[in-house]
């Protein structure tokens, strides 16, 4: 106390100096970020206006790469492939996660902890293991799924899952669903904890059933979680690459990521597959950079649309 009073006249100056120490603390992070993230992001924008293969001289071509990409088929195909995987997996996954989390939270609380831990395991598993594993499960000859189906009499002959473009899409969607169900549930659990118990009790007095309580009490309260899940799902869902790439390379012997990219009829050839192929297999860095920027624009636009749509719906109710 006394010290503070004695030093009072000098205090403003000292504080001023201390506050500027903040720059020193944030410096290491910003140094790395500027050199290894911001600089290459801007340089990629530059590359997208050139013709270049990492080694040749750069030739300025203006908007040509963008025009070529937007005129070609591959950008739309990869975008639609990506969206198809997302639409097959994510809405169902979000609804299932919400339903199960709510039931566990309000009615079967004693199972919640154990089930939470089990269902989250797929989320932390190495994607390469997941890819190989699902590839083996759906293998033509030795796959458990085919053996199972034949034993139960569901199929007479084994199904060649990995050769059928539509089945491959469904398997990738299944992986995405399987992987994220536990994670989404975890987020909903965290959100449901914030619903005040008194609100449920008040609803009970009004004679509300489980469904009413879910629809009118829980759902509006955990809206921010839903918004978070939808927006982040759009952002990373459009960047999906590991799961499809590692599934189709999984059990195909003697093959590499490059040669199997996209699977049969390129049905799981995603936006990032396109960036990867143009940039690191064909070394058309200009095209790859243009695709990367177009992909980012799509991501920002769709994330924004998702955010706006969800928020409008909420204010309506």
């Amino acid at each position: 106390m006394h010290t503070a009073k004695m030093k009072a006249p000098r205090k403003p100056l000292r504080i001023q100096n201390t506050e500027n120490f903040g720059y020193l603390f944030i410096l290491p992070f910003f140094l790395v970020m500027i050199v290894f993230s911001l600089a290459p992001t801007l340089f990629t924008l530059w590359i997208s206006f050139t013709k270049w293969n990492f080694f040749s001289d750069m030739t300025w071509v203006g908007l040509d790469n963008y025009i070529q990409v937007l005129k070609g088929k591959m950008f739309y195909k990869s975008l639609l492939n990506t969206l198809r995987i997302m639409l097959l997996a994510l809405p169902a996954c979000i609804i299932a996660a919400l339903g199960i989390a709510y039931m566990l939270e309000v009615k079967f609380k004693k199972f919640a902890r154990t089930f939470k831990a089990i269902s989250f395991l797929p989320y932390v598993t190495t994607p390469v293991a997941v890819g190989v594993l699902f590839g083996l499960l759906f293998d033509y000859q030795t796959g458990f799924i085919n053996i199972f189906m034949q034993k139960l009499g569901l199929a007479k002959d084994p199904v060649y899952w990995m050769a059928n473009p539509n089945y491959v899409v469904m398997i990738v969607a299944l992986i995405v669903f399987w992987k994220n169900l536990g994670y989404f549930m975890l987020l909903y659990f965290a959100g449901l904890k914030s619903v005040p118990q008194e609100m449920y009790e008040a609803a009970d007095i009004d004679g509300a059933n489980t469904w009413h309580k879910f629809w009118y009490v829980a759902l509006p309260t955990i809206k921010p979680i839903t918004v978070f899940i939808v927006v982040t799902s759009i952002i990373w869902g459009l960047q999906i690459f590991d799961e499809p790439a590692l599934l189709v390379v999984g059990t195909d012997n003697n093959l590499s990521i490059a040669s199997t990219l996209g699977g049969p009829e390129k049905s799981v050839y995603t936006l990032v597959s396109y960036v990867y192929e143009e940039g690191f297999i064909l070394f058309r860095t200009g095209t790859a950079s243009a695709v990367a920027y177009l992909m980012t624009i799509v991501i920002v636009l769709l994330a924004w649309v998702g955010f706006k749509l969800l928020n409008r719906e909420g204010s309506g109710r």
């Binding site: 506050e19 340089f43 990629t44 960036v275 990367a292």
Partner: peptide
């Protein structure tokens, strides 16, 4: 620390969390 630009730089960091990592990959490899 309440240095000048604190809030703006912090928001910049939050913004980078939304940018896909593949955006810079070509130049990053180079």
């Amino acid at each position: 620390f309440r240095f000048k630009g604190n809030k703006m730089l912090y928001n910049l960091v939050l913004f980078t969390m939304m940018v896909p990592s593949q955006l810079s990959i070509v130049a990053y490899v180079y």
